[in-house]
Design a protein around this nucleic acid. Structure first.
Length: 658
DNA sequence: AGGCGCACTTTTTTT
DNA sequence: AAGTGCGCCT
């Protein structure tokens, strides 16, 4: 295909955006209006008028969508687009640091992920009463949000954990201790990756112009989900780099990570001479689906100024099904998929997408899919390198690659029987300042509490430090027994398969650190590994991971009172509005059929002392107008939002279709 | 003291 | 599935 074909597929506003002169632009594009298509066309257009592909950088939100955009451009232009780059903000910044570590003051640093960050907070927080200070994970989230939003610790604390506000001085001490420890151990956490680059770009003209010289055009997808820290990265480049930002403020769903749609609303005042364009025609869905989505937004106190119109016109009416409990809901969805495929409503498994709010919620759907042998892939589950057993194994590699890696040492040492937190930290004190392999092994062998296998595992990795795959295999050979014992009652069979998968991934790498860092920033999901060979499968996904996706038939699960909005958000208007947008994103994924399901009772919603659910007055479907959905009741209980189940009957009702 | 095993809760969302 | 609390063991 050629550039002419590609541009020929665009409507007038898309074409105007794609073929803009070299000038800053913000494209406000509603759901399904061809956002990705426009970015693809823009990149292809720029290349076609002679901009070198390597001088175009596309920043997308996930690596999946980055990859997709590049592939689509390549499909149209072929070799010309070979050098086109697309990545996430994190991957882009990491590459810069990696290319010039000295320039950014990060020589010899290694990246730690969220889990490691939590471990480090645990170390510096120490053991205290649970009510005395926030948990380590909460301290980490607090720290991260403050950085991503460029706000003070005090302000962030007041918003996030007001009950701990009086302890802000002690919490500040912990933050300082964390930063000190992090520097000392030469760790970079996820936020550091962006922060380090942002600070250096802002602080050094030399660095700024070096970065700017690599890029002529910067195309940013999902702009509504960028946060102030990310804007700090873009802002200093705008005199040399042309920005093309695409977003939809009605789809901003990353507030918990500091996403700030000020980045959208203030664009024209921040970027002088910026052109603002709008894409309003929806090509994805039928009008009935958009009616529901439009209605949801119209109920908001915020004015999104969005009413999508379907170019495709009318189709089938969305359905709303109510069940007595989540198991009946899950079973029905799977049966419905099977019926649709059998009846020829759809032809492939891949024509179906099940959207859940949380990875946890998918655990109800998965067994139902498995029970009926429906092939599926789960997007947004546990990432391979995040699972405990993989981290256990990798800790042996990490301490060899970087003997200063305290977190990895702690994990590796505490794996062995007889060694807990205290003994491990005593051993770490001795090994931490050593660089020499032989000295480290000697120390480990002298520890009476540590089994010989521990030293053997490290020795095996040291002997193969330049071949990750062999290092992994030899470490596993020594650690297998211990790991099998540790996880004997926790799906060891499944975990063992993951380990084999990691060994396979390692084949493509030599350096241990490069291997780990690639998959930290570019995560592989464990379910992806298992089902890679199946290419026709139902997609099961969290709504957050479904951004940018679309599907013929979409099931939006558990749109129950207490879930939309989640009872955790009630009382916080901004949080409730974000939940509304989450639901909006879910509804607008559907092309032909939208099926919303819910439960009479929501098992997980917060209850008060009497076991009653909170007043569901904020439930998004409270004032649902008749006629938007075809409604179906599968429960013997009538649908009453705030119901107290009679004693002894909770959760045992089997749904009967009426 | 330190570690282990058991029972218990408690789950947003992601780079 | 993983974190936390508690009592018992070495």
């Amino acid at each position: 295909m050629s550039i002419e074909n590609l541009l020929g597929e665009l409507n007038q506003s898309q074409l105007r955006a794609a073929c803009m002169p070299s000038q800053h632009a913000l494209i406000l594009a509603g759901a399904g209006t061809g956002k990705t298509k426009t970015i693809v066309a823009r990149a292809a257009y720029l290349i076609s008028i002679g901009i070198p592909a390597y001088k175009i950088l596309i920043l997308a939100f996930t690596r999946l969508s980055a990859k997709e955009i590049v592939e689509r451009v390549k499909m149209h232009l072929g070799d010309e687009a070979q050098a086109l780059q697309a990545s996430t903000f994190h991957a882009w910044c990491y590459k810069l640091i990696h290319r010039a570590p000295k320039l950014f003051g990060c020589q010899g640093y290694s990246i730690i992920d969220q889990d490691d960050q939590g471990q480090l907070f645990k170390l510096v927080r120490g053991k205290v009463e649970k009510s005395d200070l926030p948990a380590a994970a909460d301290l980490r989230d607090l720290y991260s949000l403050a950085r991503n939003t460029n706000q003070s610790l005090a302000a962030t604390l007041e918003k996030m954990f007001p009950e701990f506000y009086p302890k802000k001085d002690r919490i500040a001490d912990i933050m300082m201790a964390y930063e000190h420890r992090k520097r000392e151990r030469r760790y970079l956490d996820y936020d550091d990756i962006l922060d380090v680059v942002a600070k250096h770009i802002a602080g050094s003209e030399k660095i700024r112009s070096w970065v700017a010289s690599q890029i002529d055009h910067l195309l940013v997808d999902e702009f509504q989900d960028t946060n102030p820290l990310q804007w700090q990265l873009l802002d200093p480049l705008k005199d040399d780099v042309t920005l093309f930002c695409v977003g939809d403020d009605a789809q901003s769903i990353y507030g918990f990570r500091g996403a700030d749609f000020q980045n959208v609303h203030s664009f024209s005042s921040r970027v002088k001479g910026a052109k603002i364009l709008k894409l309003q025609e929806n090509y994805r869905s039928t009008q009935e689906i958009l009616d529901v989505s439009n209605w949801l937004l119209s109920q908001s106190p915020l004015d999104y100024k969005k009413t999508l119109t379907a170019v495709r016109g009318c189709g089938r009416k969305p359905a709303l099904h109510t069940f007595s409990d989540e198991w009946a809901e899950g079973r029905w969805i799977v049966d419905d998929i099977i019926h649709r495929k059998n009846d020829g409503v759809t032809t492939e498994w891949r024509d179906h997408m099940i959207l859940v709010r949380s990875g946890f919620a998918a655990r109800i759907i998965e067994p139902a899919l498995l029970a009926k042998n429906v092939p599926y892939r789960f997007v947004g589950g546990v990432r391979l390198l995040e699972s405990q057993h993989i981290r256990d194994l990798l800790s042996a590699l990490r301490v060899v690659a970087n003997p200063q890696d305290e977190i990895a040492w702690m994990r590796f040492l505490s794996l062995w029987r007889g060694v807990g937190e205290k003994t491990a930290s005593k051993i770490v004190e001795k090994t931490l300042n050593l660089q020499d392999d032989i000295e480290i092994i000697d120390i480990l062998k002298l520890e009476s509490k540590l089994p010989d296998a521990a030293a053997n595992a490290i020795e095996a990795v040291m002997a193969n430090r330049d071949n990750v795959c062999v290092a992994l295999k030899s470490a596993y050979a020594v650690m297998e027994k211990m790991l099998a014992d540790k996880y004997q009652n926790q799906n060891w069979d499944k975990r063992e398969k993951d380990i084999k998968a990691v060994e396979k991934l390692a084949e493509k790498h030599t350096s241990i650190l490069a291997f780990i860092e690639e998959y930290l920033l570019d995560p592989i999901h464990s379910s992806q590994v298992k089902t890679r060979e199946i290419d026709d499968a139902v997609t099961l996904t969290t709504i957050h991971s479904a951004k940018g996706m679309e599907c013929q038939t979409c099931y939006v699960v558990n749109v129950s009172p207490g879930a939309y909005p989640s009872s955790h958000s009630i009382g916080d208007e901004a949080a409730v509005e974000e939940e509304r947008r989450v639901l909006y994103v879910a509804l607008t994924r559907a092309k032909d059929d939208l099926i919303v399901t819910r439960q009479v009772r929501n098992t997980w919603s917060v209850r008060d002392d009497q076991g009653k659910q909170p007043e569901p007055e904020t439930y998004f479907f409270n004032d649902l107008p008749a006629g938007l959905f075809d409604e179906f009741m599968h429960s013997r209980l009538p649908y009453i939002p705030d119901i107290n189940p009679p004693d002894g009957m909770s959760g045992i009702h089997i749904g009967i279709a009426i």
